[in-house]
Design a protein around this nucleic acid. Structure first.
Lengths: 189, 189
DNA sequence: GCCCAAAGCTAATGACACTAGCTTTAGGGC
DNA sequence: GCCCTAAAGCTAGTGTCATTAGCTTTGGGC
């Protein structure tokens, strides 16, 4: 039996591939094992089980996502930065719906074991927060505004990637409307 | 073996109880069987399997949800109706997070078998749509505005019920901010 | 009171996660 | 260059769950 040369990172990468193909709910150890050419129990040498693998994969996604958001707003500020932030957010979710879905917590999962994920999530939120602070919105106001932004764009992309918008009208136009509403709501209009 | 006197509706009700207690992901046939005092295969006399049960439960939730939304806006119009609509929406999700979570589709699940759910969902969306049409927003504009409303409030409550808002600031105040932003964005401001 | 359809059951299969405990391999120390 | 140990892999076994097949029982209509 030639050694597969696995590592925690390789297992996570295989998990991400699987999520891309089968959605967040389609992630299984059996699938990851098949993909890496190894028996299922061998995976336990590299990750501590399915929930842990899901956590690590989620943290990896959040880091990748944060990098995209950061790149999108780099060197911009104000409404332009907000526009680019929101579009980068949506583009990521549409490109990688499975990965994006991975980041939505399971509602009951208020598990405190999840420090790694919480921290990666905080870094993503910090991008929006910094954007607002740069525009002079600070303190509690920035917290509320960040939550509104995040909620609106999160809800939009979730509905979009799950086919929740049934009608035939262009979702691009709807998103433009949302961006306009948020821009006006944040920067006054 | 005394007969349990089950019916499809009783099975769905047991499923809803289970969802209330264990979350949408915690719904299992084994749990429903235990709750109804019956062996697991017996459930197949009343529902066609777990996915079908989930669908029927989701449709039931959407009907209940729609009734709440409808009651909240009855006899009101304009910004007041919108305010009441949004708060009723959030209140339902906070009261019954498991049921609300049940209504969020699985991203990959663009199954056309889901006519019952799709129709129940359409009835819920129609409440918001009617609200806007009554305020003179019609046609394509009403579609885009409805999508924005729905996305924003959906995203907010999902983040709220899953503990996604980490910071200590009041989520009530954040929601007020969102309502204000949406009201201004829809009715001009 | 009989009869049959529906409601219930047991048994069996297959996917999955996880644990226990074995074997093998590869690389570092001598 | 060889040995030895830790890590990487394995097989076997358990438990949970959904699902199917096919049996038994019950209760209401005649």
């Amino acid at each position: 039996m030639p050694r597969a040369g696995l590592s925690p990172r390789a297992v996570i990468d295989a998990a991400l591939e699987m999520v891309d193909e089968s959605g967040a709910a389609g992630l299984t150890l059996a699938g990851v094992a098949a993909r890496t050419g190894v028996a299922v129990p061998s995976l336990y040498k590299h990750v501590e089980g399915l929930p842990a693998l899901r956590r690590k994969a989620t943290a990896a996604v959040l880091d990748e996502f944060t990098a995209r958001l950061t790149a999108a707003v780099l060197g911009r500020s104000g409404p332009v930065a907000l526009d680019r932030f929101l579009r980068a957010y949506r583009d990521y979710a549409r490109e990688r719906p499975g990965r994006y879905q991975l980041t939505v917590p399971a509602a009951d999962a208020a598990d405190p074991a999840d420090r790694e994920v919480a921290e990666a999530g905080a870094r993503a939120v910090a991008v929006a927060f910094a954007l607002l602070e740069g525009a002079g919105i600070t303190g509690e106001q920035a917290v509320h505004a960040t939550r509104c932004l995040r909620a609106a764009v999160h809800g939009f992309v979730l509905l979009e990637i799950s086919g929740g918008f049934g009608l035939s009208e262009s979702t691009d136009a709807s998103f433009d409307r949302l961006v306009a509403m948020l821009t006006a709501g944040i920067f006054g209009g």
